[in-house]
Design a protein around this nucleic acid. Sequence first.
DNA 1: ATGTCAATTGACACAGTGTCAAGTGGCTTA
DNA 2: TAAGCCACTTGACACTGTGTCAATTGACAT
Lengths: 194, 194
Amino acid sequence: MSSEEIDTKTKILEASWRLLEAHQGQGVKMSDIAKEAGISRQAVYLHFASRIELMIATMNYVDEVKGLDARLAQLNNATSGTELLNACVEVWGNYIPEIYGLAKAMLMMRDTDEDMAAAWNSSMKCLRDVCQNAIEALYKEGKLTEGWSIKEATDMFMATISISQWEQLTMESGWSNEQYVDWTKFLLSRTFVR
Amino acid sequence: MSSEEIDTKTKILEASWRLLEAHQGQGVKMSDIAKEAGISRQAVYLHFASRIELMIATMNYVDEVKGLDARLAQLNNATSGTELLNACVEVWGNYIPEIYGLAKAMLMMRDTDEDMAAAWNSSMKCLRDVCQNAIEALYKEGKLTEGWSIKEATDMFMATISISQWEQLTMESGWSNEQYVDWTKFLLSRTFVR
DNA sequence: ATGTCAATTGACACAGTGTCAAGTGGCTTA
DNA sequence: TAAGCCACTTGACACTGTGTCAATTGACAT
């Protein structure tokens, strides 16, 4: 069996991931991935029907290895809504730099490919759930700023911690990740906590 | 001269703009633009050296016609920092839907093309200036929330009113533009006003 | 009538994705 | 040891979209 030797499929996924991170999700061709994996370009298609499919598989693979779900699961220890909100920003905000290349590639393809859009949304689902928990906790504590519905507040929360927001503040404006996390926590607390 | 008949260059720009808006900035080919303008594909290249150049020209053309600068210039009537901040969100927030298709196309190209990135940034410059004015006004009134530097606050301001943010809240989360403007004003006031 | 200029047509190069057919080399099973 | 299977290789090709080039047309100006 393939318990010791890494099977080709995994080699491709690793190569894809590595290149995506190295090039920040841009300009990574099927032939590059094949070369990186040490196989022929055509062989990639023996394992993945298309570029899109490979990208989605890479995303699932990274999800599995890095385990955002697991990281987020820990958060349910958080007692108060505020605490949960802050913890959420911290976990996600420190996760983004680890998966930025991949995420960027996904976001770019999402515009033109429905499957990718769906895959991305379902991958964001677990994050959204935690965000919503935080908002609901605030609400139950009577601490959610007046006027917000749960949905609206969760929408705004998600938008605020979106990859594009992170990209603009760190990559473009030159913020450190710590700055990003701290000010985002500040903005969210001020916005949602009464 | 060409005072009555629209010259071909303008016809191309109009066609480009129309298609970009109609298709939300996606999948608009040179041949589509040519067809829309009523000329041959190759003729487009007699006026614009490349797709990128045409896109940048379209952007400048729309800027000229729609006049974001002019709209923003009015704002300098605003007396207080808070007022300026709100006015800024209102003007920009109501401008976005009018130019979304074009903006989306620009943002997508920006990832792969330096010239486009530069053109986009310079186009955003006037918006950034107004945002910075608002933050500075707050600061001078002693109303800027403690901790923010002018630059950081302006960065965060810009990120909050970015196209991606608007896109996520309206196109994806289904908010009305009014909702977008109101909640964004709310979030910014809470974040920046002491 | 001659020249110029904008536009047309058709052909072609190039990159990247995806497909197909034929071949190779190693491993299993009879 | 032969037969068959399997993952992979090679090379060729179709398709799309961008960009280029050369030859041609038709209008308008001198």
